[in-house]
């Protein structure tokens, strides 16, 4: 970045109607964004139509050909490209099938967390006063509460199910969004254009939607991509604690957890689902970064 003459700062509320088209256009010029989008779309396709992609039945067990390495290595079995797990199931097919529940749980959990969190954060940061104090106390309560305890107790009472898992994971993450949004609101609230908007008599909700939200959107998107990754891992940790998605339904986290017991015999069973998680995290992060840059007109010149 050089000391080029700075462009005149664009007033955020002066963005044209077609700004999303513009953003998408900018995105498509970035290889990193295209790569991220491609991976995400592939995983979504796996999640929607796993049977189309799977070379094998993801649930068919065979105790005699268990813990085999990938088919291109010694002791590998033809047709089992990435090897077999501890029950002799095809790892590749289970990763493909696992995309469904893994993504479903993570996306909806983040959705719940972000909707609740953004709403609470905006309210707290913008309205201030008693509302702020009450929301802050709720946030503190939620954040300081051990998630594992919450999950064990509620799963014991409500019974384990994908829906309960999504709600619990989502509710455990809302305060992080709220804190970030509130912090950002506080830091932009004093900026000139917000003061200006207020002085010309713009209503609260108008300022909220037109002035503050666009400014914190990039922070939220970056954070959401993080939270998605965290949710994938939280599901893994919960299955480590025996509280994850019910077997035999595959999830990537659950597969790592099952595979770790056999690290000394087979590295394939835990490595490949780990790579799948790394890829989705990579894709989301690249997309988050590029989207953030594309949303910010001041950065679009280099």
């Amino acid at each position: 970045m050089t000391d080029q003459p700075a462009p005149a700062p664009a007033a955020p509320d002066a963005r044209p109607r077609g700004q999303w088209g513009l953003v998408f256009g900018r995105l498509m010029r970035k290889p990193a964004a295209i790569f991220g989008l491609a991976i995400l779309l592939l995983f979504i396709a796996w999640a929607l139509f796993p049977a189309l992609f799977s070379p094998q039945d993801a649930y068919a067990q065979s105790l005699v050909r268990r813990l085999r390495p990938p088919s291109f290595l010694d002791r590998g079995v033809d047709g089992y490209l990435l090897g077999t797990d501890h029950l002799g199931r095809d790892i590749l097919s289970r990763i493909i099938h696992g995309a469904r529940v893994t993504l479903l749980v993570s996306f909806f959990a983040v959705l719940i967390a972000s909707v609740v969190g953004i709403w609470a954060g905006l309210l707290a940061g913008f309205v201030g006063g008693t509302t702020d104090a009450v929301i802050l106390r709720l946030i503190d309560m939620q954040l300081a509460f051990p998630v594992v305890l919450l999950v064990i107790a509620l799963v014991a009472v409500l019974g384990p199910s994908v829906t309960n898992l999504i709600i619990l994971m989502g509710l455990s993450a809302w305060p992080r969004f709220a804190r970030i949004v509130r912090g950002s609101v506080l830091s932009v609230r004093g900026l000139e254009y917000v003061d200006a908007a207020r002085s010309i008599g713009a209503g609260r909700s108008r300022i909220l939607v037109h002035h503050i939200l666009p400014n914190i959107l990039s922070a939220i998107i970056v954070y959401a991509s993080f939270e998605l990754a965290r949710m994938v891992l939280l599901e893994a940790t919960l299955s480590f604690l025996g509280l994850g998605v019910q077997p035999p339904t595959p999830t990537w986290g659950g597969m790592i957890n099952d595979g770790k017991n056999y690290l000394s015999i087979s590295w394939a069973a835990s490595l490949f689902p780990g790579i799948a998680i790394a890829l989705i995290v990579l894709a989301l992060n690249l997309l988050g970064d590029e989207l953030r840059d594309a949303l910010d007109p001041q950065l679009s010149h280099d």
Partner: peptide
């Protein structure tokens, strides 16, 4: 930097610890 920091985020800590 982004690639390395990604690694820390993509691996569950119980797995990382054991490895």
């Amino acid at each position: 930097i982004r690639a390395v920091s990604l690694f820390g985020q993509a691996v569950p800590s119980f797995y990382l610890g054991i490895v």
